[in-house]
Design a binder for these strands. Structure first.
Length: 1149
DNA sequence: CCTACGTCACTTTTT
DNA sequence: GTGACGTAGG
């Protein structure tokens, strides 16, 4: 049978839709329009889905109908002339927002399923990926390709159709956010795409110009946001009424079954031509090109319309019809025709009345518009109707094309014609107007010759290629001096500085790493310094990696590249060389530190030596001692006296002894040992100095005492010492860093020169002004010299958001993110008056960061984000390495490798779920430690291990565990790291619980990521994983909002930054009833946090917050008050403005 | 000797 | 809101 279908509609649960957009009204309207199959839309939304389940019943195969009892009730509202079958097909639209190949993609896709079970399965999967509750069209940070994969895996019957493929902001081929081809998006899954939706602003003939769309069925749907818009575009099919028949008609495009589409005049669509709505500028693509794509009024880039984009991608001239194309029919909604005939608005009573009369008389709208014989309209009571429909059917219509979100306008008659028609009644004497008749008015809009457009397109392409290849050439050679153009004067001076000592004071965003790497490149390629003689030191792996990466680009032909690494890794490396690796040692993390310290304390307790302090506190003391280069026998008074710790020296000594027995170093040992070696072993010192003649240090203000002594020892004269830093960003005082060393540089090296970098390339001037006000507020001893400036202009104010609780704060942040990512104009909707720039539509999740003072804050935010379905990653080493099972796997690998320690054994027992009592393990470890046995030795000598009242059962369980372990060990012998990890996951000693399994799975992904860098260097990986830091876990590629502490954010940047918890007590941080330890450091920390933002900075705070299980009133941070009022915009969070009750909002999130 | 329950103190930031 | 520790009771 022939029938009409509209597959793309929404529900009342979608944003900006009519409240009466429910199934009943779809049922009624479909009949008025003459549509038989309607998409349900929005089935991912739980509210809408439950309505679907409640109101629809299975009908013909894969299709659904309104339940009989409901139908009976509604049928009386349908005129007899319109009555007809209505079937629903389960469909939804997904908004995929993600980065691919370096560009933010925002793509809408339609998905269809044959049955409710599949829909439920699908919804369950999506629920885990994103927030499907907040909108009928969910926003997912999910690659469209993976969406397709999920769709196909959920049901083989299911299919996906890219929606309105040409719209600039949200579509697969859209100019702002899409790809250049279907393949680029779906890659190897492209064959599963068999249809695309042309959208309101394009019709099939435009699509025919792209050969890449050949073979795809072009479908048209209404994308209705209200019942009345249903079927403004639709498809005409001729099949039996079933899901599979519809699918196969779309799939095959068989002209017998797929008869074609009903189309809006594309000119009527919102994005047909180019232009700026605000500036009243509307241009044909050709004109746009002449103007270089820039708006002649506001000088900003124009919004390019669909026509432009089509011409850009077209590889065929206009008017060509590919082989297997389907016919299409342009239609104008009957209400609009009536509106014109009656000369009143389309929403008027008059139009409505006439509309009802017409469908009463002639049947559904589509019948009137499309199939009814013209002569029948003679007695319609509307003298102009026949002519209007005739003109519509043959396309003799005046059109004023839409642009930049403005719908196009159509005119069927001009006043003279109208008079003629009404007066003379002689229809044939009236000249029929030609299309685009009022050419004067739209002179600018003459379509350009397709040939020209092709030429332009080709030349543009050639240009692009030229640029790309010249870039490649530049990169391919060591033609390094040429690239110095990228640097400003100060940077260049620094890079080309002659031999000698140089101190660079560089504020945030001034190109520190850039300058440093260029300096190295300069040394290698211009000064012909051997790369092996260069050492670049940083504090984080992230910085080291970035440096390495940039050096690789600058010096592609240099091998090996100069050593760019962290202080700790550097020490580890040369220590290993020094010890000649026979003495295998590993670096222990803080968990293991505490473990061994506890063991030391236990041992001392047995000797009746008591220490009146808990392990972590004692560890702090030991660390402090090490950072001051103090040995146990030294006078530790300075470290100990504060708490009058007796016997600290002997604990320190015992702890150190334990570590040395097992070949462990803690973080501070690395630095400590190297300093000792450099200062006592003359030949070692000479060797190092000889090897590292050129030393460059990043973030010099973060040096602690030990690190300072390393630098002093390596470069006592300062010859070829190049350090860069910013005293205002010194934030590591608590771990022994002292700005003192930075400030004292000029005394240490009197011949040193100093260069200031002041040009900031990161942030808007507003952000810099505000952050400077914070850092320079009275009496913080700020180095005013290091103030930076930028030429970037943006939003003129920071947004301050006050929330009622920490949860409400998280929700507000989440909502801001959702809005900005969803492309819903954030400010235009929520905050009415805002000066500044246009809303930026190109945000994706990874453009956001949320910073906070303490890790606990991150948990709340992550939790809320998780529930809201906002993809986020907590850059938190604890979580990444320890909680999610990574630690267990690493420990397992270590134990198998024979380098595990006792804490590793405890961790893997935990993993396997074997019930070995803690007591048994404790005794075992104590026995091993007492006898100075490494874990592997202890395991080999297990037979000798006994203790009083040892239970036989415990013993047997342990034996069983060990047996399995050794079996696994022999199995894994020849595997590489990745395989081993996989093997461990698949062959646990005993099957772990489901939850553990899941943790392990995510962990394995993590771990494989970290491992990739180490490849075959398994030992190195296992021995220094403890050196991995928070920021190393953070992955800038992934499409997620980044959550991190202010400390961890150092050295990073994000377009949009939220600083959460801007409250007295957090900013500056203050421990309960104690004084802030270092107010100025807190200020600098806040300064660092603020200067991470490129475009927008939000400062949020909660009026109430749980602290130690009690709700406490909180006040805005005094630091925020140091920002002058005119730079602050205090916003009411979105959450207060909605009609919905706050509780409901919070629940939803 | 072991378990159960009540009380208190606590949560900064990282290589 | 929780974890560690101490005391009372089995």
């Amino acid at each position: 049978m022939q029938f009409i279908t509209d597959l793309h509609v929404h529900s009342k649960f979608s944003r900006a839709t009519a409240k009466d957009l429910d199934l009943e009204n779809l049922y009624l309207t479909a009949q008025k329009k003459g549509i038989t199959v309607v998409g349900t839309g929005d089935f991912t939304h739980p509210g809408w889905y439950s309505e679907i389940k409640e109101k629809l019943a299975p009908a013909d195969e894969g299709l659904f109908k309104l339940k009989d009892d409901m139908r009976a009730h509604f049928d009386q509202h349908v005129r007899p002339a319109c009555r007809g079958k209505v079937r629903f097909i389960l469909g939804a639209e997904i908004s995929n927002i993600y980065k691919k190949n370096g560009k933010t993609r925002k793509i809408h896709n339609l998905v269809f399923f044959p049955d409710m079970e599949s829909v439920e399965k699908f919804n369950r999967i999506l629920e885990k990926i994103g927030n499907i509750k907040s909108d009928g069209r969910p926003i997912l940070g999910l690659d469209a390709k993976y969406l397709l994969e999920i769709v196909l895996e959920t049901s083989p019957q299911a299919f996906l159709i890219p929606a309105h493929i040409w719209t600039p902001w949200f579509s697969i081929l859209g100019s702002k956010s899409g790809f250049d081809s279907i393949e680029e998006c779906f890659e190897d899954l492209t064959p599963y795409i068999f249809a695309v939706e042309t959208g309101l602003s394009s019709d099939p003939s435009m699509n025919w110009r792209i050969s890449g769309l050949d073979g795809l069925t072009l479908v048209s749907n209404s994308d209705a946001h209200s019942p009345s818009k249903l079927g403004r575009e639709a498809n005409l099919l001729n099949t039996e009424l079933s899901y599979s028949a519809i699918k196969s008609a779309l799939h095959s495009g068989d002209p017998e079954h797929y008869l074609g589409t009903f189309e809006f005049y594309p000119e009527e669509g919102k994005y047909h031509l180019d232009g700026h709505r605000k500036c009243n500028v509307r241009l044909w693509p050709q004109k746009t090109k002449e103007k270089g794509g820039i708006c002649p009024i506001c000088k900003k880039p124009l919004t390019l319309g669909v026509l432009h984009r089509v011409q850009e991608l077209a590889d065929r001239p206009e008017g060509i019809k590919p082989k297997h194309s389907h016919p299409y029919y342009n239609i104008i909604p009957l209400t609009e025709i009536l509106s014109e005939i009656l000369m009143v608005g389309p929403g008027s009573k008059k139009v409505k009345h006439n509309f009802d009369q017409l469908i009463d008389k002639f049947g559904p709208e589509f019948r009137i518009l499309h199939s009814l014989e013209l002569d029948l309209f003679e007695n319609s009571g509307l003298p102009l109707l026949r002519e209007a429909i005739k003109r519509m059917r043959c396309g003799k219509i005046d059109l004023s094309p839409g642009y930049d979100g403005e719908f196009g306008k159509i005119k069927i008659f001009n006043p003279a014609e109208r008079e003629n028609l009404l007066g003379q009644k002689n229809l044939f004497s009236v000249p029929i107007p030609s299309s685009h008749h009022n050419i004067e008015k739209f002179e600018e809009f003459k379509l350009c010759d397709p040939k020209i457009s092709k030429e332009i397109r080709q030349s543009a392409k050639a240009q692009k290629q030229k640029v790309a290849s010249s870039q490649k050439d530049a990169d391919a050679q060591n033609n390094f001096p040429g690239t110095l153009e990228k640097l400003n004067l100060e940077q260049r001076l620094a890079v080309q500085h002659p031999a000698g000592t140089l101190l660079i004071v560089a504020g945030p965003g001034t190109g520190k790493t850039l300058t440093l790497t260029y300096r190295i490149a300069h040394l290698v390629s211009q000064k012909h310094v051997s790369p092996q003689n260069i050492l670049a030191l940083t504090f984080t792996h992230h910085a080291a990696r970035e440096m390495h990466h940039r050096l690789k680009m600058l010096l592609p032909n240099t091998k090996p590249l100069p050593l760019a690494t962290t202080f700790h890794s550097f020490c580890f490396q040369i220590l290993k060389e020094y010890e000649n690796t026979n003495n295998a040692f590993t670096i222990i993390d803080d968990y293991e530190q505490t473990y061994f310290l506890q063991k030391a304390l236990d041992a001392l307790k047995q000797d009746n030596i008591h220490i009146p302090l808990k392990a972590p506190k004692i560890l702090d003391k030991i660390i402090a001692a090490k950072q001051r280069m103090l040995e146990p026998q030294d006078n530790l008074e300075s470290v100990a006296k504060k708490y009058e710790v007796e016997n600290i020296a002997i604990v320190y000594q015992t702890y150190q002894k334990l570590l040395s027995i097992f070949g462990h170093y803690d973080y501070d040992d690395l630095i400590f040992r190297i300093v000792r070696l450099l200062e006592t072993d003359k030949s070692f010192e000479i060797k190092c100095r000889d090897r590292f003649q050129y030393i460059l240090v990043d973030e010099y203000q973060d040096l602690n005492h030990g690190q300072y002594r390393i630098i002093r020892a390596l470069s006592p004269t300062g010859k070829n010492l190049f350090v860069i830093g910013d005293p205002n960003q010194s934030i590591y005082g608590f771990r022994g860093s002292e700005v003192r060393y930075f400030k004292r540089f000029l005394q240490d090296y009197p011949d040193a020169e100093i260069i200031h970098l002041k040009q900031n390339y990161r942030s808007t001037q507003t952000i810099l002004d505000a952050s400077f006000q914070v850092i320079s507020a009275s009496g913080c001893g700020t180095d005013v010299e290091s103030r930076v400036f930028s030429k970037i202009i943006g939003v003129k104010k920071l947004s301050i958001i006050e929330a009622i609780s920490e949860k409400a704060e998280a929700v507000s942040i989440g909502q801001c993110v959702e809005k900005m990512v969803g492309g819903i104009g954030f400010y235009s909707i929520d905050f009415d008056k805002i000066d500044g720039t246009e809303e930026d539509m190109s945000q994706s999740f990874s453009d956001f960061a949320v910073l906070y003072r303490t890790r606990g804050q991150g948990d709340i935010i992550a939790d809320v984000f998780h529930k809201a379905g906002i993809p986020c990653q907590v850059a938190n080493r604890e979580d990444a390495i320890y909680k999610k099972g990574v630690a267990e796997i690493v420990s397992f690998l270590k134990v198998i490798k024979g380098i595990g320690s006792y804490p590793d054994l405890e961790r893997i027992i935990d993993l396997t779920g074997i019930e070995i009592s803690a007591k048994f393990l404790n005794k075992f470890s104590a026995w091993g430690l007492r006898n100075g046995l490494q874990l592997s030795q202890a395991l080999q000598n297990i037979r000798h291990f006994t203790f009083e009242r040892m239970k036989e059962k415990d013993r047997l369980t342990f034996d069983g565990f060990l047996l399995k372990l050794s079996a696994m060990k022999s199995q894994m012998q020849k595997m590489n790291l990745e395989k081993k990890t996989k093997y461990i996951l698949e062959n646990p000693v005993l099957p772990p619980t489901e939850k553990k399994k899941e943790n392990l799975k995510t962990a394995s992904g993590h771990i494989v990521g970290i491992m990739r860098e180490f490849r075959s260097r398994e030992f190195e990986f296992l021995s220094q994983i403890a050196l991995e830091s928070d920021t190393d876990i953070y992955n800038p590629q992934s499409e997620k909002v980044t959550l991190l502490t202010m400390h961890a954010a150092k050295g990073l940047e994000f377009p949009i930054v939220f600083i959460a918890g801007c409250e007295k007590g957090f900013v500056p941080f203050q421990r309960s009833n104690r004084k802030t330890e270092d107010l100025n450091e807190e200020r600098r920390l806040f300064y660092v946090a603020m200067t991470r933002a490129k475009k927008r900075l939000f400062l949020t705070y909660a009026k109430k917050r749980m602290v130690h299980g009690q709700t406490v009133n909180r006040k805005l941070s005094p630091f925020v008050k140091d920002i002058e009022k005119k730079l602050r915009q205090h916003e009411t969070p979105y959450i207060y403005r909605t009609n919905t009750d706050l509780a409901v909002q919070l629940k939803l999130f």
